[in-house]
Design a protein around this nucleic acid. Sequence first.
DNA 1: CTGAAAGCGCTAACAC
DNA 2: GTGTTAGCGCTTTCAG
Lengths: 343, 343
Amino acid sequence: MKPGKEVTIYDIAKKLNISPATVSRGLQDNPAISKKTRKRIFDMADELGYRTNHYARNLRQSQTNTIGVLVHELNSNFITSVLAGIEKITTEAGYDLLIAHSSESAVKEAANARNLFHKRVDGLIASLAFDTTSLDHFKPFKEKGVPLVFFDRVEQDADNTVVIIDNAKCGYIATQHLIEQGCKKIVHVTASLKRNVYAQRYKGFRDALHDHGLKFEESQLIVNDLSEKAGVEAALRMLKMKPMPDGIFITNDFVSAVCMRTLKENGLRIPQDIAVVGFNNDAIGNLIEPALTTINYPGIDMGEIAARNLINHLKGISDIHQTNTIIVRSELIIRKSSLRKPV
Amino acid sequence: MKPGKEVTIYDIAKKLNISPATVSRGLQDNPAISKKTRKRIFDMADELGYRTNHYARNLRQSQTNTIGVLVHELNSNFITSVLAGIEKITTEAGYDLLIAHSSESAVKEAANARNLFHKRVDGLIASLAFDTTSLDHFKPFKEKGVPLVFFDRVEQDADNTVVIIDNAKCGYIATQHLIEQGCKKIVHVTASLKRNVYAQRYKGFRDALHDHGLKFEESQLIVNDLSEKAGVEAALRMLKMKPMPDGIFITNDFVSAVCMRTLKENGLRIPQDIAVVGFNNDAIGNLIEPALTTINYPGIDMGEIAARNLINHLKGISDIHQTNTIIVRSELIIRKSSLRKPV
DNA sequence: CTGAAAGCGCTAACAC
DNA sequence: GTGTTAGCGCTTTCAG
């Protein structure tokens, strides 16, 4: 193995006195090649330390065997689970992953989309940033016929395939649970209502209040950016309300934990004074006190489903445009933060 | 823009009545091309919706402009910070990232290394899995002259560049802090001592005990896999010790949180009965009760440093083999979980 | 400042 | 079952 010099199929061909085409076929397990030759090819490849030049192959085949993944952040349990699911499926199918994250910025998201497009991904799986409103940056993909699958944070128009949970239902059952625990004034802490997930959860929240004859005032809705600072502020704001809320439904477990901390620091008891329900079922929920009631939904499944749909489409097994919306199961996990009555 | 047909530099050249070579040079801001021509080229490229074919370019230049990153897991704050740091630097320098994670399995790590090698990354940044002992899977990189940088979990032999913190010192100050708080029997919960980070922290722990005249028994060392289950077991084991420890130094914040939960469930008060110090400064430490004393070290800086070193080497600005070990600062963050005396 | 031409390593018609 | 050949899109000498 001379350093610096790459082994090519020509080297293998020469050593074996066969043609490069045969080597190429052999390496791909083409059935037209006899068992013996194939074995000789593989052995020689090993011996010489051959490695495929993916760039030559991709150039030739004009397809990259790469799937782009566009997410808002990497730092949540949920996202890493989704990634794990995607990775499992794509790896099995022999695709590479190019992962980009937008740090919740629509501008960076557009830049990443452009980059992935220029990298010629065969398909794209994406979850949108907070403030993404237009889907223009995905247009090039559509024009080139590169299939798109959105998950979780999506924009639902006619021709996107989306993998989501029933956020409205989740919002409803979370709120209903609080009502069943005796809460009369429930505050909802969430992020920009322009984003489907938050809009839907809010809708569920409102519907549940309405169906149970509870009234709603604007002050019961707190919209922020789900940061630690925002969590503290939300809690302080609730402390000043008259009357104070006796239940909170928060759209994210981290912010729930922050809120709870601030409330407890101010002498409130959870769930007696205020019952709390979060969202996502992050590890944190089971470590804080009291343990957090939350909505669980399977990131890994969402990832697998998104990836599988995309790949089946790429392989021509199914057409992605036929399956428009896939809803993944979700459930309420009841823990102490909301439990005022025996179950 | 006809669908399915890619625009190449030949198309641009033809439209402009110049040669493909000129277009290629223009696109790369080659100073040999006049401003006017360059502008015309860019405008036409825009108009036609041209996108570079990276595969053709890489094939031609036989370098990929890609850096591989090999990590044990994605699900920690620390790792995602490192990744953010790496990404910042590599993006600025125009490199792509190929990220692989080994789920703490040496076997998968080797497979990932092989894959990245076959993908021909120009350089590799890695942090090892728990049970990785041999560095054989990195040999191909060395043989081909592909530069390697290890961070955090490393194997220190002569010719690897490593970016680490002073784990022994951190272990020492964590332990010393507990001693200063009046702890007489301190237990250390950690992972496989084959891994440098854990071995060094343990060394610091032992040194601190020794320097302060405290004796050590084998039972004061608990080695596990840092899972939730392991955290619970560790706590239960300590509850059975006679006498019970009055201080714990745990190598990871998550396990600290789990341990604390179990101890509290069993009626122990923290820090009065047992003082706890963790490691990593994850977000969780500030949300549990009492807030967790821990060691902070800057993942983002480690990522940036690792990436910068690698890239400078690739660009020939500096030689990676000259800088063998880079130590990043770290510090003890004191919170309530360990505070028995006024500061 | 620009053009002509060769070649990076691989695959896929098309032959035989 | 195997060989010949052309070409994927780009960069880069070498010429002018």
